[in-house]
């Protein structure tokens, strides 16, 4: 079950194609899965970027950050994941908006793809905007081009597209008077917040896929709670998409950093384990 059938590395992002036919059949744009690499793992949420009902495969893009994503990154084709639960979350609202702008950074480059695709199929004009530090860090580009009327780039060093970030591209478009009827953003919290600030003055309906810490993903624990417009919402069942102009970003950032200490302890103990293993094997 949940066999890893394809794997690729794009700098620190790992493409993982996993056999999960039932999920491939039922998933819709904007939904995610919760996965565990092995029985000791943490349950972590990952957006599903692509799927194929014929092969029964789902595609995830995992950004290597801490222990859980590192252990996933170490898995090999042929290995099986211990848990892949999903689809979870409410699907993105897909309808004919007119012009839809989608912004993606880090894992969001893959994350926006299914929404772009569904929006395109619903007859929208689709503008995809993706950011990375350097030009060689982009991925899933061919697919994104196929479903977008326009793909715009932003890089920190200016090596591809605009020098800057998605928010800079969006701001420039809006200043130029490009009409955007709906915006979707997926990526790190800072990016989501800054992009929402960019669309706020123009009152563009803005959906952001929040990334609060999750555990069960079924609404049972409240770990993922976020404040949106003064109300407490559970990101796993009420979201993950919320109105970017109403999110309490400070609280989200604070709650996301709750386990920093434990995360660094475990990360370090892992490197020690690996060193010890290597020493045993005479590699050090």
């Amino acid at each position: 079950m949940y066999e890893l059938i394809e794997k690729a590395e794009i700098f620190n992002v790992h493409k993982m194609v996993i056999k999960a036919p039932e999920i491939a059949h039922s998933i819709q744009a904007g939904q995610f899965v919760i996965i565990m690499g092995n029985e000791y793992s943490e349950r972590i949420p990952i957006t599903v970027s692509d799927w194929n009902t014929d092969t029964g495969a789902i595609t995830l893009y995992v950004l290597e950050l801490g222990i859980s994503t590192l252990e996933l990154a170490r898995m090999k084709v042929g290995d099986s994941l211990y848990v892949v639960t999903g689809p979870l979350g409410i699907p993105s609202e897909i309808k004919k908006y007119g012009t839809v702008a989608l912004g993606g950074g880090c894992y969001g480059i893959g994350g926006i793809y299914p929404i772009a695709k569904a929006c395109k199929e619903a007859g929208n004009k689709v503008i995809s905007i993706i950011e990375a530090r350097y030009s060689f860090m982009f991925y899933h580009e061919k697919e994104l081009h196929a479903v977008s009327d326009q793909v715009l780039y932003a890089t920190s060093d200016g090596s591809k597209g605009k020098k800057g970030k998605v928010e800079d591209v969006i701001r420039e478009m809006l200043e130029k008077g490009v009409k955007i009827d709906q915006a979707f953003f997926i990526g790190c919290t800072q990016m989501l917040e800054r992009c929402s600030e960019a669309t706020r003055p123009y009152a563009i309906p803005t959906k952001v896929a929040l990334n609060s810490i999750m555990l069960d993903g079924t609404g049972m624990c409240g770990a993922c709670r976020v404040s949106v417009g003064g109300e407490t919402k559970f990101a796993c069942v009420d979201g993950p998409e919320f109105d970017g102009h109403k999110v309490d970003w400070k609280e989200l950032n604070r709650r996301r950093s709750a386990y920093t200490e434990q995360e660094s302890v475990i990360y370090q103990s892992y490197s020690h384990e690996c060193m010890a293993e290597k020493k045993l094997r005479g590699e050090l």
Binding site: Y40, S41, E42, R43, I67, S68, E71, L215, D216, M220, C221, G222, A223, R225, S227, T232, E251, R254, R255, S257, A258, Y259, Q262, E263, V265, I266, S269
Partner: peptide, 29 residues
């Protein structure tokens, strides 16, 4: 919603189901 405020469900699920009382062998913090 302060950090350190949990539902009992979350606290107990971390400890029981995810065995975080055996952290770091079990990875859930």
């Amino acid at each position: 919603n302060l950090n350190g405020v949990f539902s009992a469900n979350e606290y107990l699920t971390r400890s029981n189901l995810m065995k975080s009382y055996l952290f770091p062998k079990y990875r859930t913090p």
